[in-house]
Design a protein around this nucleic acid. Structure first.
Lengths: 124, 124
DNA sequence: GAATGTAATTTACCATGGTAAATGAAAAAT
DNA sequence: ATTTTTCATTTACCATGGTAAATTACATTC
């Protein structure tokens, strides 16, 4: 499942809240680039058509829930980038990511450990 | 500069060739998902409007050249993914990338070396 | 009960990426 | 010289993401 920018931010609100109304999501968005309630409602419909969310009506109001997992969306976006842009060259991608000066020592330690863990899985 | 899928494939042909006609690019594309000459011409125009390519006419034919660098496009796509989807968590992204079973031992070795090199830069 | 507020729904744009046929003009082949 | 090929250009779609006003329907408040 491929999502646009605002779609992703809407999903993020839903993933955090578990369930949310269009109004609540609109409020969540107001911190960054704000969108009107109307826009959020439109996108929620489109997300529902795509099968990314579902809604349940209580009283007059729609309560939305995510149907797709954050991890799955992220994973497929990462795989897509790797394939489309880097021709599946992991080292090519990582080389670019490591160029960023703001990478912390902790991050480096963490990802090194990820790789070492993966190496251990390798031999099995 | 953000490029669509076909736009990227067209650029890739241009990056490899240095200079190419719409026809040559169309031929290059015929290996994967093919596109008609007409479509390629249309997209080349749009790429030119965006400033991604320029053309030069010789005889009757347009010869296109890339104006943007492959590395820059890749880099910005990677940064965009990292920020938009992973909230700038490098380890989060790498964790997903390493889940792919088809990662080779060589790739692992390569990226480990990238990280170690980056660690050495760190202390400076 | 009338006014106000709050929902969903409808409708209508715009931009971008992609698709390609149709047309016209020029070069190449016959 | 006529036909065929090969370009560029024009035109016209479609899908998706995003934007939002206008409308309608229902609650809440005064």
């Amino acid at each position: 499942m491929k999502l646009g920018n605002l779609q992703l931010r809407i999903m993020r609100s839903l993933w955090e809240r578990g369930e949310a109304t269009a109004r609540q999501i609109t409020d969540d968005l107001s911190g960054g680039v704000p969108s009107t309630l109307s826009t959020v409602q439109t996108l929620l419909r489109k997300l529902e058509t795509k099968g990314a969310v579902r809604h349940e009506q209580r009283e007059r109001t729609f309560y939305f829930r995510p149907l797709i997992k954050e991890q799955d969306v992220a994973r497929s976006a990462a795989q897509d980038l790797l394939a489309r842009v880097y021709d599946n060259s992991l080292s090519g991608l990582l080389a670019h990511l490591l160029e960023d000066e703001t990478v912390s020592a902790e991050e480096l330690r963490d990802i090194k450990q990820l790789i070492e863990a993966r190496e251990r899985e390798m031999t099995k």
